[in-house]
Amino acid sequence: MQNIYFHKRRKIVEKIFFGIFRLSSAINALALFIIIYFIVGKGMQAISWTFLTEMPTDSMTKGGILPCIIGTFILSLCSIGIAFPIGVSSAIYLNEYAKSGTVLRIIRLCINNLAGVPSVVFGLFGLAFFVIWLNLGVSLISGSLTLAVLTLPVIIGATEEALKAVPHTYREASLALGATKWQTIYKVVLPTALPGILTGGILGLARAAGETAPIMFTAAVFYNPSLPSSIFSKIMALPYHIYVLATAGTEIEKTRPLQYGTALVLIVLVLGMNLIAIIYRSKLRRRMR
C-alpha cells in the first residue's frame, strides 16, 4: 500500500518540477519574443533601401545609417581579430602548459576580475591608455583595442572550457604514439575543441558589436558622414548612434522610428554574424562525428 502512495507522490513531484522548468524556459523565450516584437514592430517602418545605404542628413533626422553599419561591422571584426588569437593563445597556455601554482592562480584571478569590470570603466581605461597615453586618438584602432580587452575574458573562458572538455585519453593516445605536446595540442586537442572555441569567438563578437560605453570615448563620434578610410578614422557605430539619437538630439521624439530602426539593424547584424558562425560550427561538429 505504502508503495503505491510513494509511487504516486514521486510522479506528482516529477510533474511539478518539470512544470517549473518548462515555465522558466517559456518565460525566457517570451522575453526574447517581446523584445523582437517591439523592435521589429517599431523599427520596421524606418527600414528602407535609403536607410541602409545612405549617409545621414538633416541633423540625422533623415537619410540613412550606412556609416554606422560599416563602423560597427569593422569595429567588431577588428576587435575580435585582436582578441581571438590572444585569448585562444592564453587559454592554451593556461590550460595545457602552465603548471598549477601561485602565478597561475593570480593570472586566473585577474582574468576573472576583468570579466566583472563594468564596460564604462573599459571606456575610461581606453581613453586614458590608448587614446591619450599611446596617442592613438579617438579612432577605429583605439576602439578596437578597448573592445578587445573587454572581450578577452569571454574568449579565454570559453576556450578554456572547450579545452577542458577534450577527454584526457585523447592526449594520452597522442603522446603514447611519440607526438610532442605541441603536436598533440595542434592536431588533436584544438580540432576537438574548435566548436567550443568558436562559440567563444561568437560570444565575444556579439558583445563587441553591442557595447556603447567602451567606444564612446575611444572610437565613436556622433556624426561623421564618411566611411572609415584608415585605422585612425573616427567612426560612427550603431549602438552609439542609438544612444545619441535617444538622448542628445533636439528632436528625440521625431527620431524614435530611426532609433528603433537602428536597433533592428544592430540586432540583425549581430544575429547574422552569430548565424554564420553557428552554421560553420555545426558543420565542424558533423564532420567530427
Partner: peptide
C-alpha cells in the same frame, strides 16, 4: 614513447 608503444585498457580512438 615512439619506441615503446601502448594499447590502452579503454579504447581511445581520436575523433578523426
Amino acid at each position: 614513447r615512439k619506441r615503446i608503444g601502448m594499447v590502452f585498457q579503454k579504447p581511445n580512438p581520436f575523433p578523426k
